[in-house]
Design a binder for these strands. Sequence first.
DNA 1: TTAGCTTCCGAACGATCGGTTGCTATATTC
DNA 2: GAATATAGCAACCGATCGTTCGGAAGCTAA
Lengths: 199, 199
Amino acid sequence: MSPRKSVAETRLTRRRIVDRGLEIASMEGLEGLTIGRLAADLGMSKAGVIGHFGSKETLQLAVVDEAADVFVREVQERVPDVPVGLVRLREMCEAWVAYLERHVLPGGCFFTAAATEFDDRGGPVRDAIRGMSAVWQRDLRIQARMAVHAGELPADTDVGQLVYDLVGVMLALNHFLQLEGDSVAPGRARRSLRRLLAE
Amino acid sequence: MSPRKSVAETRLTRRRIVDRGLEIASMEGLEGLTIGRLAADLGMSKAGVIGHFGSKETLQLAVVDEAADVFVREVQERVPDVPVGLVRLREMCEAWVAYLERHVLPGGCFFTAAATEFDDRGGPVRDAIRGMSAVWQRDLRIQARMAVHAGELPADTDVGQLVYDLVGVMLALNHFLQLEGDSVAPGRARRSLRRLLAE
DNA sequence: TTAGCTTCCGAACGATCGGTTGCTATATTC
DNA sequence: GAATATAGCAACCGATCGTTCGGAAGCTAA
């Protein structure tokens, strides 16, 4: 039926698949993302979908990559160009809160959902998720360390502890927003961040 | 093949199913819990498994109930008989940390996993999970309120905010333990709790 | 024009999903 | 001891899972 598309159109089809796949995965989970469901949503055949990836696992990895791109675009690139250290750390966290508040993905934070879904298994998908999570936490740790070094945070600050607490604030935000539809949660998150990142 | 069992044995079979089901669900998720897998694990037929419940949803609800029982047994009943208020609140949180540290379930906190899995869907299973979560948070809120009233916490304490932060500490603990196998996480959790629940 | 490459489809594969149906064998009840 | 109730099994149902295969259709290079 469908003939060969130009190179540009082909890339576009692949993007459509991954984009819709990310939406589904953020709601139903990476395992709940089904070739048949994806094909039906996009009005194409299962073979046409899987042909771009070869296997479901490759598709899952492409979705994880896309989630990382979305995170870069919707969080990291929106961090204002402020000096490194405490000010930048605050803006990174604010961008994070705003991202969840904006409901960019229908299922909330993709990495939160994917992490709890795959935390007990092995395999490349779990490794990819863990890698993405590690990169962001590393960025937080770097800024926190700079803030300590610049005297913007107490000299005896435990940077690992601080990152732990920041992650907790974000996990709680996702939890209260998604499970309980709690609209005051972003305010709570910001208040916790203010206390954690006070000068 | 298998004949009818005595009433006691029947109850025991049902318990075996739900117990193993909870273990599987804590690792693979409530949807990843399949009748066939459960039957194979227990050395019985699918019909023998589903016969006790009638449908998979009923089985899932039974597993959620069992998870609540485990939580009561492993957390709430281990809270020492200390006076209400701040002291009791501290012991409740400590019991919670110890529960995750003890690795009672192979997949970590069942309700954390179940909540993120079902937070985007409707139906009785989601309602049950939300209900369990609400009960525990209510208990926390009550003790926090008593602590404020007794002057053990600052008078201007925002109890909702405190519960938000406590939940964040626990979600982070589960996250770092399960995804990253971080053995220092329980220490981090206790340190955060000490800061949140300082007199 | 022609040959090759690629995208996508329709159809089918074996496996597994949740669930149903008869049946056997036993515990319980009378 | 006879009648009844029921736990669990083997077999099967239609649906869906991920995946494979052959071919149709159109772009591109020769």
